[in-house]
Computed example of a mutant assay.
Amino acid sequence: MAIFHSFRNECISMLLWVLAFSVCVWGRPATFLQDFRITWSDSHIRQLDGGRAIQLILDQNSGCGFASSRQYLFGRVSMKIKLIPGDSAGTVTAFYMNSNTDRVRDELDFEFLGNRTGQPYTVQTNIYAHGKGDREQRVNLWFDPAADFHTYTILWNHHHVVFYVDEVPIRVYKNNEAKGIPYPKFQPMGVYSTLWEADDWATRGGLEKINWSKAPFFAYYKDFEIEGCPVPGPANCASNTRNWWEGATYQALNAIQARSYRWVRINHMIYDYCTDKSRYPVTPPECVAGI
């Protein structure tokens, strides 16, 4: 991994020899506002620890959101998040990548669905490729994500998209373009997060409503890491096979990761669109191809 702070200062000089050797890759920000911007309700986002952490607030007046200042094409994004404690039913804390295009969008979603006190938090992942989404999977987290910070990561390269929780893979979406299945690789995506009220669907399909007597609700973020090809930026960055995330180590899960992945899916998966015959009487092609 690059040494983030010094790497930025070297990017300008690196561009002079980019065609011969490598490309400039963006590293993680030192503070929140260095690489992110508030997109929704700045009164509900507070910077902590000199901007190295933030607090998101949800109350009856508003939720809030933020986004990266730039878009990226392939790479890895990661954040440490501490979710809403106690009765969080009806709330959604989201961390995702989005191409910000209306009709043919690409998107990679983490959505943390709150629950009643004592019930497990559910994380829903979804993938949009060339405008087609509806690929939800849900996993009950095997720890209390409100008790401490945990790391949530999206790895995106030419071979697959992998969602990680504390380095444990919980979702893999392979590039099956050779079988005619869309894969997000043409549009750069920004990094987004929101905290909002969605009690019409978020908890038990909308059966559990938000308890506003528990408001305000707080979620915390820190250690914002982005390493990828910025757009606009060097034209050949995204296709450069020397980018670390395109290396052999990151083209498929290793044996240990594969075991962890199977463990999650056997013990903690509670919904998979691939097996939902009420929605998909014919199994979606990417499920048959192997995701």
Rank of each mutant, 00 (worst) to 15 (best):
Ala215Leu: 04
Asn98Leu: 12
Glu111Pro: 14
Tyr121Gln: 12
Ile54Tyr: 03
Gln257Phe: 02
Asn126Asp: 13
Ser193Arg: 04
Leu33Pro: 00
Ser193His: 08
Phe163Cys: 02
Met79Val: 15
Lys185Phe: 05
Arg8Pro: 05
Asn115Val: 05
Leu155Asn: 01
Gly50Tyr: 02
Glu225Gln: 13
Thr203Asp: 02
Thr125Glu: 03
Pro230Thr: 08
Asp109Gln: 10
Lys214Pro: 05
Cys64Gln: 08
Ala219Met: 07
Arg242Asn: 11
Tyr271Gly: 14
Ile12Tyr: 12
Ala238Ile: 09
Arg265Cys: 06
His158Glu: 01
Ile256Pro: 00
His268Cys: 12
Gly65Phe: 10
Met269Trp: 09
Gln251Ile: 00
Tyr72Pro: 05
Arg105Asp: 08
Lys209Ser: 01
Ile38Phe: 04
Asp223Leu: 05
His130Phe: 10
Tyr192Leu: 14
Glu286Thr: 04
Tyr250Cys: 01
Asp272Lys: 08
Leu16Phe: 14
Ser62Lys: 11
Phe112Gly: 00
Tyr250Met: 01
Lys82Phe: 10
Ser99Asn: 09
Trp17Phe: 13
Cys237Met: 09
Ser22Arg: 10
Met97Tyr: 06
Met14His: 13
Gln55Met: 12
Ile226His: 05
Tyr261Gln: 06
Val139His: 07
Arg262Asn: 04
Glu107Ile: 14
Tyr271Arg: 12
Gln34Ser: 15
Lys174Ala: 03
Leu19Asn: 15
Leu141Gln: 04
Asn236Lys: 15
Asn267Ser: 11
Asp109Asn: 13
Thr203Trp: 02
Cys24Ser: 15
Asn175Asp: 02
Leu58Met: 15
Met189Ile: 12
Pro284Thr: 08
Asn98Cys: 09
Asp148Gln: 06
Val23Tyr: 07
Val23Gly: 06
Asn61Arg: 15
Ser41Asp: 12
Tyr221Pro: 07
Tyr261Met: 07
Ile226Ser: 06
Val25Lys: 01
Asp102Pro: 02
Arg171Asp: 01
Gly247Ser: 10
Trp17Gln: 13
Lys185Arg: 11
Ile170Asp: 03
Cys274Val: 06
Gln137Ala: 14
Lys132Trp: 12
Leu16Ala: 14
Tyr261Asn: 04
Phe224Val: 09
Pro230Gln: 05
His5Lys: 14
Lys179Arg: 02
Asn236Leu: 15
Ile291Trp: 01
Thr125Val: 12
Leu207Ala: 05
Asp59Asn: 15
Asn115Ala: 12
Asp276Phe: 12
Asn100Leu: 11
Arg262Ala: 07
Val168Trp: 01
Met14Ala: 15
Arg204Val: 09
Gly190Glu: 05
Arg37Val: 09
Arg116Val: 02
Gly51His: 01
Gly65Ser: 08
Phe149Leu: 04
Ala94Ile: 09
Ala67Arg: 14
Asn126Met: 11
Asp272Ser: 14
Leu141Phe: 06
Gly190Arg: 04
Arg171Glu: 03
Arg138Val: 14
Met14Tyr: 13
Ala67Lys: 11
Gly63Asp: 10
Trp263Ile: 00
His150Gln: 03
His268Trp: 13
Asn254Met: 00
His159Met: 00
Gly206Met: 07
Leu16Tyr: 11
Gly180Arg: 00
Gln71Val: 11
Tyr183Phe: 07
Arg204Leu: 04
Glu208Ile: 00
Lys82Ile: 10
Ile266Lys: 05
Ile127Tyr: 06
Ile54Cys: 05
Glu225Trp: 07
Tyr152Met: 11
Pro216Ala: 12
Ala235Trp: 15
Gly27Leu: 06
Asn115Pro: 01
